[in-house]
């Protein structure tokens, strides 16, 4: 049975990193989001160190008594996670730069198409114009009336 009581300094650091990270991720500018993601990722890495239990001697068999070794598995996983985060950060950075190249800013933009549909809904318009039923733009009553009164003069503006 090993001592799993977490190191308080690590826990506080993790809490601070996650708080700041969440705040930054909610920003609009991609570079701030990027820093937020780095902080979050490193907070998660520190969490792995806490998960490994108490710090101990280097885990090399034959060099150290086995009871005093620290658990190497979380360290291996943290290494993997750090490498992955590095790659992702590089990609995100490149994307922020490309966005700046194209738009002169790196704001994360809204879903344009979604905004269009929402605006249509707000003014109660159809998203799709039905070419075969809506082209006349008149109500069924008007259409019926027109169909019945063939001999009468056409209403003005009515399409033929």
């Amino acid at each position: 049975m090993i001592d799993m009581a977490p190191n308080l300094v690590l826990v506080v650091t993790i809490a601070v990193m996650f708080t700041v990270g969440v705040y930054l991720v909610l920003e609009r500018s991609l570079s701030r989001v990027l820093i937020g993601i780095i902080l979050l990722g490193n907070g998660a890495n520190l969490l792995f160190l806490v998960a490994g239990g108490r710090a101990g001697r280097p885990p090399i068999v034959g060099l150290e008594p086995e009871g005093q070794m620290s658990d190497p598995l979380p360290q291996a996983m943290v290494l993997t996670a750090i490498v992955i985060t590095l790659g992702m950060t590089a990609f995100l950075l490149a994307m922020a730069y490309r966005s700046w190249q194209l738009n002169r800013h790196d704001e994360v933009q809204d879903d344009v198409e979604d905004r269009r549909i929402a605006r249509l809904a707000a003014i109660d318009l159809r998203a799709v114009q039905d070419a075969d039923t809506e082209e006349s733009g008149q109500s069924l009553d008007e259409e019926a009336e027109e169909a019945r009164d063939e001999t009468d003069d056409r209403r003005e503006g009515g399409p033929s």
Binding site: M1, I2, M4, G52, V61, E66, G67, M69, D71, P72
Partner: peptide, 11 residues
Amino acid sequence: TPSATVGGDGS
């Protein structure tokens, strides 16, 4: 429970 030996014995 997790023990340091379980992690450390992958020799």
